[in-house]
Amino acid sequence: MKRLTVLAATLSPVALLASCGSGYSTGEEAGEATSTPAPIEQDGTPFSITERGTYNEPWAAAFVPGTDVIVITEKSGTIRGKNVENERAIFFEGVPEVDYGGQGGLGDVAFLPSEASSDISGRTIYLSWAEAGPGDTRGAVVGRGKLLCEEHQTCAITGLDVIWRQDKTSGRGHYSHRIVFSPDEKYMYVASGDRQQKDPAQDLSNNLGTIVRLNLDGTPADGNPWGDDIWSYGHRNILGIDFDAAGRLWEVEHGPKGGDELNLVARGANYGWPLRSNGINYNDSNIPDHSPDDGFTKPVVGWTPVIAPGNMTILDGTLFSAWKGDAMISGLKTKALIRVSIDGETAREVARYDMGKRIRSVIEGPDGALWVLEDGEGGRLLELRPK
């Protein structure tokens, strides 16, 4: 989440509710991969850590723009919120029914920066989750609704409509379903994983293994290369996606056994999965590596052994001023935060911070502090500030 200035205002009763704390994954285990070697630079742990609560399988977090309210999704189908200034809890009603199991359940949460104010009531909320389909099928969806916060410490999600659907298939893995808005807020990009089906990622007749580009109402955006919702394809399991300050879109995705990738996303680009990977299959069978002449877009950074990313945010605050413009990636198998320096269209890992637990999510708060969610039952919310 990008840094936003908290707005000063004379608070209405609902605005006061927001100000006072109104309203209240396991993820992929990455096969048999192991931790990666030491980074190029070893920065130690240059931040203090404060525990700010525990959650049941937390998956994603976002600050409501213009406020100190953090909203956290729990994979089993609950949304919890808290004003981090005064610890007042916020409870959410109207949360959608989710298909919970495997890597599926409630996913991402996102808000529109242009709606920043001190009042959380009336805000547009975007959610992603796994939805059951006919037979033994399921797929990710994105829904859009409004927050109505009329009762003390309770917000209802009203008018929640599904505005985009991933093509449904069997299994309960690789939904991806991360959400990000373009800097001009004209478009919404959604990560659509290959659902562990592999071959559909090279088949443009479906939207598996793709990044889709949508209008804010979920319809395909004009200018997409094939006239449907697909922007890029040949992806595996994208769990981090964000824009840099220059408006370039980056994503980080799980490889199989080895071959995690940081990619610069381009219109119509094919990233090669499952025909190319710098990893191998879990049964140790070979996958051809990327090569200069294979016709596929190459990863900017690759990791073998894997980092097992949980999500990614590109920092634009000033609290960690030396890190501005860097990508911070949460590590699951690695139990770490991985910092990647981005320089134009190139990037390199520069530091790795051992957190001792699987890390599902890291976001940037309103004043530039980092907010980290541990994975799994009892996952802690941690606030990180410079020492």
Rank of each mutant, 00 (worst) to 15 (best):
R267T: 06
K387G: 01
E131F: 00
L319F: 12
R339K: 11
W273N: 05
R138P: 10
E29I: 14
R88V: 14
L373G: 10
V64C: 10
A8P: 07
E87G: 09
G21Y: 14
I157M: 12
E345F: 05
S277D: 15
Y189E: 08
A246R: 13
K335S: 15
V362M: 09
G279F: 01
I163Q: 10
G135S: 12
R385H: 04
K335W: 02
W59A: 11
R165Q: 13
T318W: 02
T124D: 15
W371N: 08
D354L: 03
W371T: 08
N237Y: 03
E377Y: 07
W164H: 14
S25V: 05
M355C: 06
G31A: 11
G310H: 08
W323P: 00
A18G: 13
D119G: 03
G268R: 10
T169H: 07
N281K: 13
G331H: 06
G234K: 04
E261D: 06
S182H: 00
R144V: 15
S182T: 03
E32V: 05
P58L: 06
D184V: 05
D354F: 05
S121C: 11
E377F: 09
G240A: 14
K357S: 13
L214C: 02
V142L: 13
N207M: 06
A191L: 10
S117Y: 03
P13V: 05
E253C: 06
S205V: 02
R3C: 13
D203Y: 00
R358C: 12
A221R: 02
A130T: 15
Y233H: 15
P200T: 01
P39M: 01
S48I: 01
I241C: 04
W226F: 14
G81I: 11
K198Y: 01
I157V: 15
S12H: 11
S118D: 10
R360F: 05
